[in-house]
């Protein structure tokens, strides 16, 4: 899918909460072996949720975009851990940023790819001329059932991207996007259930890999590109192994995915996972670099994007904190504090 007129990222930023828990600490409680899918994961504080983190990322994205927030005409927040089941998060973000009420806003859900769906909506709205700027946010305080494998990785974070017509102000423009979706029940959560369920190794080959690879290949075919044309790649990061394996299967060198591979040190931030990876990659990219990004949402689908970095990255980058600032800002908590912060204690 290519937008009819050229669109790009005019501002981006991420937010990662300060607390971390080591996978080994979770393993200590449940007597798991010594091989963990990641090193540590980000834990939102007790007073944080997907919406507060969305606001933090959005504020920095506006600062980096150097635009008047009143010109943002659309906000889409992708999350599977909305603080309200019914009531939009986007309106809260808009009020916090002082965005005009002449606003399109909705929350998206598609497991871990809700954030990139928001990308596509904003790209389309800008390309069609319906809005001047659109903001897409992926934000989650993902929860894993205590003792479940997911508990090692389910983490908290947010990333916000502002899209506008391609110009000198554009940090990276969109070459195209391609989605691939099927009815694949590898992971789900029923209403009123606090924790998601998943079908073990079924989440791998028929789910993650099939969709990620299909979307990536579809995009490259559509844009007439090969893996070698990309300087960087970002894949959805449910654990350390999957994105590395996906890159290998596509023939993309590991070095190209390293800058955006945050999962070992912050965990799987669900809707924020690939957007945060993209943000971290933009933090190091040079003008002219081409970036492949492929999200994955269980249930299942993948959105692939190709971005080309422009000169504006150089002067806009210092206007907001790099992802590394959040990665390095951390306080370790033990399992007891973690259960308290994530409201797992029954009162």
């Amino acid at each position: 899918m290519k937008p009819l007129s050229a669109v790009g990222i005019v501002g981006y930023a991420g937010y990662i909460p300060i607390y971390r828990i080591k996978a080994a600490e979770i393993g200590r409680v449940w007597g798991t072996g010594c091989k963990y899918p990641i090193i540590e994961k980000a834990v939102a504080a007790i007073d944080e949720d997907a919406t507060t983190m969305a606001v933090e990322a959005a504020r920095y994205a506006v600062a980096r975009a150097q635009i008047n927030p009143e010109e943002i005409g659309a906000i889409y927040v992708g999350s599977e851990s909305k603080p309200y089941a019914v009531k939009p998060s986007g309106t809260i973000v808009a009020e916090a940023l002082g965005i005009s009420s002449q606003l399109l806003a909705a929350d998206y859900e598609f497991a871990c790819k809700a954030g990139t769906e928001a990308f596509q909506t904003c790209i389309a709205l800008v390309a069609s001329g319906m809005v001047k700027y659109g903001m897409a946010i992926g934000a989650d305080t993902a929860q894993g059932r205590p003792s479940d494998e997911l508990e090692f990785t389910a983490a908290s974070g947010a990333a916000a991207f502002i899209f506008g017509k391609k110009s000198e102000e554009t940090i990276a423009y969109v070459e195209g996007t391609h989605s691939y979706s099927t009815d694949t029940p590898d992971f789900w959560r029923r209403p009123e259930e606090p924790y998601p369920s998943h079908y073990w190794r079924f989440t791998g080959k028929p789910a993650y890999f099939k969709h990620v690879l299909s979307a990536a290949k579809g995009l490259m075919e559509e844009l007439n590109l090969t893996p070698d044309d990309f300087d960087y790649a970002v894949f959805h990061q449910p654990n350390t192994k999957f994105p590395l394996a996906a890159a290998k299967m596509l023939g993309i060198e590991e070095e190209k995915i390293k800058p955006g591979l945050l999962v070992p040190i912050i965990g799987n931030t669900y809707s924020a996972s690939s957007p945060l990876g993209l943000a971290a990659t933009l933090d190091v990219a040079k003008p002219g670099d081409r970036i492949l990004m492929v999200s994955y949402g269980s249930g299942a689908g993948s959105d692939a994007f190709s971005f080309v970095v422009q000169e504006a990255i150089e002067w806009k980058r210092p206007l907001a904190p790099p992802i590394a600032a959040f990665v390095n800002r951390k306080k370790l908590v033990d399992y007891a504090c973690y259960t308290r912060y994530r409201r797992k204690l029954r009162k």
């Binding site: 300087d231 800058p259 933090d283 190091v284 904190p321 790099p322 992802i323 590394a324 600032a325």
Partner: peptide
């Protein structure tokens, strides 16, 4: 939250 862009977070490439 302090940050400093002088120190490149990832100088490779």
């Amino acid at each position: 939250i302090e940050w400093n862009w002088q120190k490149k977070p990832n100088p490779e490439k």
